[in-house]
Amino acid sequence: MYRQIALLLIGILIGSTFTMYFQGRDIESREPERVIRVGALRAIYHEIYLIKGLGLDEYVPAEVEVKIYPHGTAMMTAFQAGELDIMYVGTVPAMNAFSAGAKIKVIAGTNLGGTSLVVNKSSGIKRLKDIKGKKILVPGPHNFQDVVLRAIILPRANLTEEDIIIEYEGDKGMMIHRLVSGEADAAIVWEPHVTRMLFDENMNRRENIEVLVPWNEIISEDPSKGYRYSSSCLVVGEEFLRENEDLVRAWVLIHALAIEYWKRNPKKASEIISREMERIAQVSISPEMVEEAFKRVRLSLDPAIDSMKLFSEKSHELGFSKEKVDVEKLYYPEIQREV
């Protein structure tokens, strides 16, 4: 099974057309008693949408069930309840859960960058210090964006949590509406929702919305360094890994193949992600908007371990995790190294 999927990957790496490697090859027989329950967010950089759209999951001998969550904290709660096996989840919720005793491993990265702080111009926010006293929307409690706002952006503005109003809004459609209408002053969120705030559904630029802290100035104000953070990662339950290492290895391979496909076919990949996000996650977003959103995020196998260590420290300082996570114990690089 691994060799068959590896051949697909090698085919792309040496420049052969993608479809050649599907023609004439037997898809592994599904084993109905084996199931992979995959969790994801409504994020363009969660490779599950490309995997499903390209049919790569058909090369894994198990039924694949996909479940969508509003934010990473909710997803990790579902994992703890025994509902998931593999997760495309925020690094901070994963580390917080690990700190609380969750038996998980990070097995690969998913993206670099992708988070921005967006403001409504009518709020009067022109500089970072102007967010004082303003209402800022965050996707969920104790997630990546929550930590970025509290532990990085506020100190950069010489402000504290008491200086702003934080409201959690898990419904991204409502978050966009509240920001655009002026009910909220700012929002910190991931792609493609940053782009959905900046443009209407016809790709007309909204004049009253702008980015205050861009995706590549999150962990550093130097754009050449500020994007090197992994806001989410590929996570597996330890028990599932132990009992189904063949499936996990196969999944990492098709995950890597999806990333390589995006690198070599960005326009087509955007079309596929657009279609699959609507089908799987009920998010209506045009291929043009997906393509625009990818200007602010990159798919990557790199889990950006240094950034994980940074956010582990920040999350612990905020009291979101019981202890500072030893990222080296959380990260299981063996399968990724094979890829």
Rank of each mutant, 00 (worst) to 15 (best):
L198E: 07
E83F: 11
T91H: 02
Q282M: 10
G109D: 10
I44N: 07
G140S: 03
S315M: 04
L13R: 13
G182V: 05
R275Y: 11
L154Q: 04
P192F: 05
V325D: 13
I273M: 04
G82W: 10
K309W: 10
G113A: 00
K135R: 07
F320I: 03
Y227A: 12
L13V: 11
P214N: 04
F294E: 03
N120Q: 00
Y331N: 02
W262H: 13
E169L: 02
V148D: 02
I218R: 05
R298W: 13
E317T: 09
T19W: 14
A74T: 00
M95P: 01
L212V: 09
I164W: 05
E292S: 08
T91E: 07
N204E: 14
R264I: 09
R249G: 00
A108K: 06
D302S: 01
V194H: 02
A78D: 05
I68S: 00
G226E: 12
I48F: 01
K132S: 06
V35R: 14
M277R: 09
K268N: 11
A281T: 06
A250T: 15
R298L: 10
K295I: 08
V235L: 08
I68Q: 01
A269D: 06
E239Y: 12
I285G: 09
W251D: 01
M87C: 13
L330S: 08
E317H: 09
S312I: 02
M76D: 10
I152E: 08
F240L: 10
V252Q: 05
L212H: 07
K225A: 14
V180S: 03
V290A: 01
F144H: 04
P192N: 06
V194E: 03
E239A: 13
V147H: 00
N143M: 08
Y69E: 09
A94F: 11
K134H: 05
L154K: 00
S274N: 06
A43M: 15
I219R: 03
M203E: 11
R30S: 14
M95T: 00
M95E: 05
L8M: 15
E313S: 15
I166S: 07
G11W: 00
Y69P: 05
L54W: 01
T77E: 14
E183W: 13
I48N: 04
Q282C: 07
Q336L: 05
S230D: 04
Y168W: 04
R205E: 10
E169P: 08
Y59F: 15
I280Q: 04
K314L: 15
V211Y: 09
L253R: 07
L50G: 03
Y59E: 11
S224W: 08
E317I: 11
L54F: 02
A269E: 01
T73M: 10
E313G: 06
K103L: 12
G72V: 07
I153E: 04
G182M: 09
F98P: 07
E276M: 06
S99D: 08
E278L: 06
V194N: 04
